[in-house]
Design a protein around this nucleic acid. Structure first.
Lengths: 357, 357
DNA sequence: TTGAAAGCGGTACCAC
DNA sequence: GTGGTACCGCTTTCAA
């Protein structure tokens, strides 16, 4: 295979000039180029298999139709991946391409990742994190329209719009689901205090109890961690050697892997899920929640939606800002100004049931 | 923030010509540009925060320092992600950037993904799949140096080098581990027959038994699927209501999620892992295998290594092919010509132990 | 030692 | 209706 055909090749084959080729292939042929020339040009383009060189286009137009994505850890997590997938789908549908740079949780690589992307003339920038967290946006990011997904800058003046899950509401609706099943003694296995996700989910949990006029029993909110073993040990603490009346009848976990650990522990103790104890996850982790035995009731994180929403907003900003940029802050849909809250989605499966009588 | 500085800006500030700037900043100043001009140029570049426009560079040099990666499903899987992470790290270390296009398992998007990438003037192409599988490389891929990771083209003439895990050996070493612990009746919970990974692992399994002069009991190889519930039901079939002498003493699973299902089933049946039955996973899936209770002994897929190996080979080919391409097939390290086999790595944790007496 | 100029592949303006 | 040409930002050759 030899090198790709250029507009000049097409022009020669069709016996016209480069400009004619450009006009016709961009739909502005009518009224500028003779009908029969147009036909010859299209034929020539087809036989040569011509597509314009995106690099040359970028240089000329000063816009690359590339969106740069900085991720703190794409790779090993289905989380970031889904956000990026949602964003990428939207971008692709509008003729944009995304390029992802992964800092692998090394914050010192933030600025250089952004700089590399900027050198590539990206039209816009998106910063994605695995877990919900606050950050200081890399300064360079302000040079082009930008958006944050699953993270936020808590300095009010930062001025980069953020798209994050509505964790408080998620926690509230999770607890409500259980409350409606008749549970009154519900334990919460939280991740850690450092990521804002767990505290927000707990806040929602408390709000649900409050709204129902019920108390949260002391000692029922356990900071556990995020992994299977943490769930296992947390559940053992809650269930092992505890008489039925003193046992929580339901355990809601800050993620699905914790819930796996809880079920593992229940099985080992001879407790049936959900007959003896209901278990809820959070995240709806792919290939885990739905295939677990029993399949996990969980609060699905709207990852793809967040990615899509973030990208949609970004591209809108791009098209509104034809040449020079305006300072108008994006209108917030909910939450703090500049923050869009995307609701989580309750997925009821088999790990929760009515309170044991 | 206004727009980025160009070489011309630097030249003006330093009071020299653009060419001088180019020479100096590319290390070819000595012998061409006066020492003091050099200093002024560097200072000017620094104060203007100048970095060259990668787009213009690409157009000029006809090489973009971009490697295009086509993935059949990055997103939701830690698998692809890790391969890409390994590849990306190598690429970045050599000043390349990767851009990933995800076909989301839609094969009709193959060619268009490659075409898009080619329009962007990628210097090389890599095709990555979530699971090991054969494929027909998109024709366009042959236009630039390319490599396959975790997949292969079974048409001998395709001529695209592939980097894949040594699954046969992985299956063999997994069985050997168990055999050495004294197990003689070992069951294998396979995925499905359609992906080549499972059959190869099974082949290795059989080879290990053969080498030990032992038979594989009939009915001990079960095609189960790939998920937690499949592992659960497979294990129930093997263990539930079966007297100890007729029970396998070890179960090796085609992946870690199956192993989770097996442990879940064992717990429910009151069987202890590994005291009553040893369980092995495969893949060493992040956040699952090591945090499982008990932590899973598993055969780690060399994902990052595969990505790194593939990218290393690709970049080598790029640098050996300064202008026009040569047809020399890449030398195979093992396996079929053009295929590099990367060994898996046995990770011994707590889910396997000596055969019960 | 320096600067002018060509060209990478397009697009768009402007004479003809 | 058409083709010539300037320009996007950079590298590289060549003449001064």
């Amino acid at each position: 295979m030899n090198r790709k055909a250029t507009a000049l090749d097409v022009a020669k084959l069709a016996g016209v000039s480069r400009s004619a080729v450009s006009l016709v292939l961009n739909g502005r042929g009518d009224g500028n180029v003779a009908k029969e020339s147009q036909v010859r040009i299209r034929e020539a383009a087809a036989t040569l298999n011509y597509t314009p060189n995106a690099i040359a286009l970028s240089l000329r137009n000063r816009r690359s139709r590339i969106i740069g994505i900085v991720s703190d850890q794409v790779v090993t997590s289905p989380f970031d991946g889904n956000i990026i997938a949602g964003a990428d789908a939207v971008a692709r549908s509008q003729g944009f391409v995304t390029v992802v740079m992964d800092t692998e949780l090394d914050e010192t690589r933030d600025e250089s990742a952004v700089a590399t992307l900027l050198d590539r003339q990206v039209d816009g920038l998106m910063y994605v994190t695995v877990g919900l967290r606050p950050l200081h946006v890399p300064l360079n990011m302000l040079r082009v329209p930008s958006v944050l997904a699953n993270c936020f800058d808590d300095r009010p003046e930062a001025g980069v719009p953020a798209v994050i899950p509505d964790e408080v509401r998620g926690g509230r609706e999770a607890a409500t689901h259980l409350l409606e099943l008749g549970h009154r003694d519900i334990a919460f296995l939280a991740g850690d205090g450092v990521t804002p996700a767990a505290p927000r989910r707990i806040q929602g949990h408390r709000e649900a109890f409050e709204a129902a006029g019920l108390p949260v029993r002391p000692g029922r909110i356990l900071e556990a961690g995020w992994d299977i073993d943490a769930g296992f040990h947390g559940a053992m603490k809650l269930l092992d050697g505890v008489a039925a009346p003193d046992r929580p009848t339901a355990i809601v976990c800050a993620n699905d892997r914790l819930a796996v650990g809880v079920v593992l522990a229940a099985n080992r103790l001879g407790l049936a899920v959900p007959q003896d104890v209901s278990v809820m996850g959070y995240d709806d982790e792919f290939r885990i929640a739905s295939t677990m035995v029993p399949a996990l009731t969980t609060m699905a994180l709207p990852l793809r939606e967040m990615g899509a929403a973030a990208m949609t907003g970004l591209l809108r900003e791009l098209s509104e800002e034809p040449e020079d940029y305006d300072d108008g802050g994006a209108p917030a849909e909910h939450g703090r100004p500049g923050q869009t809250l995307v609701p989580c989605r309750l997925v009821v499966r088999e790990s929760t049931g009515p309170v044991p009588s």
